[in-house]
Nucleic acid binder design. Structure first.
Lengths: 210, 210
DNA sequence: CGGCATACGGAATCGCCGTTCCGTTTCGGC
DNA sequence: GCCGAAACGGAACGGCGATTCCGTATGCCG
């Protein structure tokens, strides 16, 4: 079968690698600032490239945005992982603050952030890291045992909603909400009887309007 | 000035009134289900009318969506007002649950909900009603005195974010978040030092990407 | 240096959607 | 029932943006 290696990923030419990077940087900047509705032409211009070049690296606009989102999630997850090694019990809170800050800077990505058509590697990894951070917080008595990983994800989605709404008009709003909510997570007994979102549910978030 | 009454709103013909209502109903249904990106043609079809008729009642699509959003906000505010008269202290919590339920049903409107180009009458009224509900809750000792109207709005935006993300996959997620958060609002001393969002900031929410 | 696969640019294509226009139909007062 | 104003339907227009295509330029290997 000589065709076996026809889809093997051949190394890109040096200029192609450089340009791919330029596209991602340009798209990242524009999307963060103006949202996902920036046109491919704007991105190409920002990158100093032709439109055709964008399409040589990414089959379509969706793929480009997906790449941006994936990179963003990876960055946040990495931040969380590095907080994990300290094992101080405050890792979860620090992570949430860090994530909030990142969300604020990537406002344009937000509508796409938790709407992947299916779970990506970074999303899966996020569940693991958050679970570990939560476990540490609970061991140190900073969070009630009844709190689940799903609750932390829901909190992230809440922060996203706040940041999306307040934009730069009230940049500190999300952090006050976080402070208040963290207090709720410490309450004993657990102030709710409703079950948390399950890991499975987290994994199956569907795109809107589908 | 014979032109003085040239812009007086003349009563609509009976069929025009009926059709205007049909448009709003159809648009409401489609937007709730599929989001604001439904085309005018789809709305016209759902309403059983021609496109031209839509444009006779609403100057453009934005105006139509604005009318939907305004109606939605009014409905929620009315619900809040009716909780106010009981003066039981639980009005605020009941209002938040009611609002969450309404948000869940109007998922498609959400991206536009708190992005009016400028404050509408309903939005202004919302501030008043929420303020009164909060005051009652505080008098009854169900919410700490340090909590402000802005905190309640931020909580609503948080719920919106959760509902937008979870959709019908985890319909109860927002309510658990609310339970946990309400516990935080009761904590003494106030678990944060950050200032709440001000009324003025609430009034000046700007459209995204502007 | 030569040859070619790979990459690039950007004009042209294509489809979609908001909006406009105008001939036809319907309402409502007389 | 008759008439003019108001309303209706839906084809046609215009713009925008994603995507494609192909002639040209460039890195890479021998």
């Amino acid at each position: 079968m000589g065709a076996a290696d026809s889809d093997a990923t051949r190394p890109l030419r040096r200029d192609a690698v450089r340009n791919r990077e330029r596209v991602l940087v340009a798209a990242g900047r524009l999307v963060a600032e103006h949202g996902v509705d920036v046109s491919m032409e704007q991105i190409a211009q920002e990158a100093g490239l032709g439109i055709g070049t964008l399409y040589r690296r990414f089959p379509n606009k969706d793929a480009l945005v997906d790449a941006l989102v994936e990179a963003f999630v990876e960055q946040v997850v990495d931040a969380g992982r590095s907080l994990l090694v300290r094992d101080e019990g405050t890792g979860l809170e620090d992570f949430l603050r860090e994530a909030g800050r990142s969300l604020s800077e990537q406002r344009g990505c937000l509508p796409r952030l938790w709407h992947p058509s299916r779970a990506t590697p970074a999303t899966r990894e996020a569940r693991v890291v958050v679970g570990a951070l939560l476990a540490q917080a609970q061991e140190h008595g900073r969070v009630e045992p009844g709190i689940a990983v799903g609750d932390v994800f829901v909190l992230l989605w809440a922060l996203r909603g706040i940041i999306e709404t307040t934009g730069e008009l009230a940049p500190g709003a999300w952090e006050r909400h976080l402070d208040l909510h963290l207090a709720g997570l410490r309450c004993r007994p657990l102030p709710t009887t409703r079950p948390p979102v399950s890991l499975d549910q987290i994994a199956h978030l569907a795109p809107p309007g589908a």
